[in-house]
């Protein structure tokens, strides 16, 4: 997070993590497509010839109409391929919140787990723990055959800490919900640490509703946030140490 007091601007870094080909870039493309023209900048992709992410994708979103504070969201993806370990570590540095995009297919279960452990390790290298980090998990590709069942995911999610979203990013389903959920968690964590709402007279609930609306979702915030299974969407308390 970067706070510019002079211009009353807050820049927040969100990172989409996950195994190769799980749909991280597709999530960003869906967000970009859903966003009002004024809210979103160009989606920057640094990709190789075969459409695989080389370094990262970057989607800048800016929301200026909230109170007196402009909020700039920089949404990154990491390259999922195993060989890009060092790049992932560079990108995840300084992240304020992380959306973990998992591939729902049964065959990808192991890759999801490995990538999550990789995330944990990379955070550790930056002196962070998963506990300190706002994280939502998205099970993408729900429309494919041979995927893990809703019941199985719900069962596991109910035991976990992270809110879990089901999505078909190719069709934009579940993308905004995951994003708003992530932003909610991230904002709660940042507010708990920096007292942003009070300092800037900021109404985070209204802000989230605005973001959702500018991303084309006009439902009440509670409904959008309620789209997750399991996990806890309440305020993350910064861990001591």
């Amino acid at each position: 997070m970067q706070l510019d007091f002079v211009n009353r601007e807050l820049t927040v870094k969100l990172v989409y993590y996950g195994p190769a080909l799980s749909g991280k870039t597709t999530n960003l493309q869906a967000l970009h497509k859903a966003a009002e023209p004024g809210a979103s900048g160009r989606l920057m992709t640094l990709e190789t010839r075969d459409d695989r992410t080389l370094f990262f994708d970057l989607l800048p979103l800016t929301f200026r109409n909230q109170g007196s504070l402009a909020v700039r969201l920089k949404v990154f993806t990491v390259p999922g391929q195993v060989i890009h370990a060092s790049t992932r570590r560079l990108v995840v540095q300084g992240a304020d919140g992380i959306a973990f995009i998992a591939d729902s297919r049964n065959a990808e279960t192991q890759h999801n787990a490995e990538s999550f452990l990789d995330l944990k390790e990379n955070l550790k290298q930056h002196g962070l723990t998963l506990k300190q980090m706002p994280v939502v998990i998205q099970f993408n590709k729900r429309d494919l055959p041979e995927v893990r069942s809703d019941a199985e995911i719900a069962e596991l999610a109910s035991q976990g800490r992270e809110p879990v979203y089901l999505a078909v990013a190719m069709r934009g389903q579940g993308v905004v919900e995951s994003f708003v959920g992530l932003l909610h968690l991230t904002w709660s964590a940042l507010d708990a640490e920096h007292d942003l709402n009070k300092k800037f007279g900021f109404d985070s609930q209204a802000f989230l509703a605005t973001v959702a609306k500018k991303l084309g979702d006009s439902r009440p915030l509670s409904e959008i946030l309620g789209a997750c299974v399991g996990g806890a969407l309440d305020v993350l308390k910064p861990e001591a140490g």
């Binding site: 920057m44 990262f56 970057l58 890009h84 060092s86 790049t87 570590r89 560079l90």
Partner: peptide, 18 residues
């Protein structure tokens, strides 16, 4: 320009990290 700048920086940073 921004993309090129980022790419070259990421190249360097990745090499350095490796």
């Amino acid at each position: 320009g921004h993309r090129a700048l980022l790419t070259s920086n990421m190249h360097l940073a990745s090499v350095r990290e490796s």
